[in-house]
Amino acid sequence: MADLLNFELVSPERLLSSGQVAMVVVPGSEGDFGVLPGHAPMMSTIRPGAISIYEADSNTLTRRIFVDGGFAEVNDKGLTILAESATPVTDLDPARIAVDLVAARAAKDEVAIARFEAMQAAIVN
């Protein structure tokens, strides 16, 4: 079989990215998991975090995309991620996030705090 995995990243507004990749590491709600071609069917919720996409081979990380949580579904046709919003990690602005995080902490908005912390973690890695 082909050594590539069909990968689709979909937001409610549009299909964000679709193509053949070597491996994708998904931040599942119960821990990260990597999906390689031929992965067993599974379905998982996603916590806010970065999806790592290894396009050419499974050793070189090519793209990282931050998602706000959502769903990942692996079936015989490939991996589909349903995310409400997605931003390339390179587009995240650390200064902005730091400010927003302070605001979220002040407001005691747990969801927002978790989200911004996850963003920071994504940038550091």
Binding site: E30, P41, M42, M43, S44, T45, D76
Partner: peptide, 9 residues
């Protein structure tokens, strides 16, 4: 292709 899907959680 009916397959046993693993669910997480």
């Amino acid at each position: 292709v009916p397959a046993a899907v693993e669910y997480e959680p």
